[in-house]
Design a protein around this nucleic acid. Structure first.
Lengths: 119, 119
DNA sequence: AATTCGTGTGATCAATTATTCATATGGAAG
DNA sequence: CTTCCATATGAATAATTGATCACACGAATT
């Protein structure tokens, strides 16, 4: 009689499920975490961050390093800024970008290591 | 006279650019790294991995924990398997999934920490 | 062997997203 | 103030992708 015809799940192990459920972090928070990961999940943005881990660079130099249009780079920098992964300072007409903190480097290093191991 | 009408880049600081360029990792490798990040960049997959970090679970239990269809979970598990982030063992009709290694946990912890700091 | 049930998967659709193009903004120099 | 140039951005397009649906597969039970 209860509403149960949406998304029929049959073999649920009640205790295990509720145990894990209680240990899950908030949906909203995990969404934000995955959203941060997403910033690293595009090769253009990853290259930008990796380049910036070597030294601070202005937008057009980043474009030259990645061999991409200034516009494309600028759009991606906007995304990275919005997630507090990069910051910038103005110097004349130019904008020098740099990594926001050490977390970014750690994240990349960790994933680089993981990727290397799987070869 | 040189070919220069594709992707006009004007203000290039030659030395800095070639310096960073020489330090860049291979395009193909960085692509693979970003591809691994991408696995964490979807909230469904992240929830799956977080749940599995609590305990091994079969597919339908995962579906119950996340309150999603078994099919959706299975599709995402396929992605995670292909990237060597989760493994599974069969037990009767069921498939119990678990995290492939400690890197996965480390990655999530690091990003969770970063996300918390930005609140 | 027929049925049941947990899981895997191909096709499809809707939504998201990365890049390009054109243009706007704003600091610096004449 | 006008021009130049580095950067930012809105609109449009093309490509990617996550969820659903329908169905196939395979182990276990009868």
């Amino acid at each position: 009689m209860e509403e149960k015809d949406t998304c029929e799940v049959v073999c649920v192990h009640e205790d295990e499920v509720s145990d894990v459920k209680s240990k899950m972090l908030e949906d909203e928070f995990l969404f934000e975490v995955s959203d941060n990961f997403k910033a690293f999940g595009d090769s253009t943005r990853l290259k930008i961050m990796y380049a910036l881990s070597q030294r601070d660079l202005c937008v057009c130099d980043l474009a030259a390093v990645l061999d991409m249009s200034q516009s494309a780079i600028s759009h991606q920098l906007r995304v990275l800024r919005s997630k507090n992964l990069v910051k910038f300072r103005r110097k004349g007409k130019m904008a020098y970008y740099y990594l926001a903190d050490e977390h970014v480097v750690s994240m990349i290093e960790l994933c680089v290591e993981h990727t290397k191991e799987k070869l």
